[in-house]
Simulated scan of single mutants.
Amino acid sequence: MLGLQYFTFEELWSPMFFFFMAALVILYFYLAGPWREKHVPEAPPVTVMQKSLFVTGAVLYYMAQGGPLELLGHLMFTFHMVNMSLSYLIVPPIILLSIPAFIWRSLFRAAFLKKLNLLMHPIFTLVLFNMLFSFYHVPVVHDYVMTHFLVHRIFYGVLLVAAFMMWWQIVCPVPEWNRLTDVRKMAYVFANGVMLTPACALIIFSSTPMYATYNDPEVWAKAMGYCVSGDPKALLSSFSGPSFFNLMEPAEDQQLGGIVMKLVQEVMYGAILAYIFFHWYKKEHADTEDELTDAGSAGAAGAGV
């Protein structure tokens, strides 16, 4: 129905990328099991929940960047935004929560890495991720990145690192490296939502197609050359361009893509905000009860005297 039947198994499933992601999962289970027992025996065992989160994050990232969703992202802008949402709004916090603190401590214990600590300032990471994400969705930038393979790989890699840096401030897996209080985390999440809104609004409220990658057959064929084998121009002899696969008009596809991105952002940030708020409320309530208990004990002791 979406046209995937016209592509080969290799084009749909990217076997090399699959094996790379599978190797990362195997490495994770080695570090979480035999390596921990040998090098950090005092560290608590990795939980089933953490292991499940890592596998889930790896599968989602593979689907978005190497599986059928990645190919669909070249055919429809809506799927492209689904992939962006998975890769930079959903996968990073899942992976951060799945990797135990002892692995992060071992990974960043090198002295030269500690010198990069300034790069992890919350304001810097906030601005960096949202600036890169918004800049990418400027039409001329998007089309350039999508049609230049090396630039595409580098930009996506930098954006992924920036996403992890941003999410680290919110779901920091190492307690002693946590820079923000719960209240500041709530403000941080809110600021993220505000800074991402202009890019989504630009896409949602534009009544004309902005991205040549999804409405210009020549540009589309060049971009498709990175995920299909053979001469990409041969696609134009078999298909009329992206319109052959798209279920909607380009402008409608573009608007739906912007809505998908905004909805995912709102759901993710809303869920994170709710979690942080209840965690903060529970902690504050527990602290208040402890203070009342201590005051009551002191009063009783005074009365006894």
Rank of each mutant, 00 (worst) to 15 (best):
V141R: 06
Y144L: 15
M146R: 08
M146V: 04
F149E: 15
F149W: 15
L150Q: 15
V151R: 08
V151G: 14
V151T: 15
R153S: 10
I154H: 10
Y156A: 15
G157C: 10
V158M: 10
V158C: 11
V161G: 09
A162C: 13
A163T: 04
F164K: 11
M166D: 13
W168C: 12
W168V: 07
Q169P: 06
Q169G: 10
I170E: 10
V171Q: 10
V171P: 10
C172P: 03
C172A: 09
P175R: 03
E176I: 03
W177F: 01
N178T: 05
L180N: 11
L180Q: 12
L180H: 15
T181C: 06
D182P: 10
V183F: 15
V183T: 11
R184L: 14
R184N: 13
A187P: 09
Y188M: 10
F190H: 08
F190L: 11
G193D: 00
V194P: 02
V194S: 00
M195H: 01
M195Q: 02
L196D: 00
L196M: 05
A199M: 14
A199W: 01
C200G: 03
I203N: 05
I204P: 00
I204E: 00
I204A: 04
F205N: 05
F205P: 02
S207Q: 13
S207I: 00
P209I: 08
M210G: 13
Y211S: 02
T213W: 05
N215V: 08
D216F: 06
P217C: 04
P217R: 03
E218N: 05
W220R: 05
K222L: 12
A223R: 02
A223Q: 01
M224A: 07
G225I: 01
C227P: 00
V228G: 09
S229Y: 12
S229C: 06
G230T: 07
D231M: 01
A234Q: 07
L236Q: 01
S237Q: 03
S237E: 05
S238P: 03
F239M: 06
S240R: 06
S240T: 13
G241V: 02
F244Q: 10
F244I: 07
L247K: 10
L247C: 08
L247M: 15
M248N: 11
E252H: 06
E252R: 07
D253H: 02
D253R: 04
D253G: 04
D253Q: 06
Q255K: 08
Q255R: 14
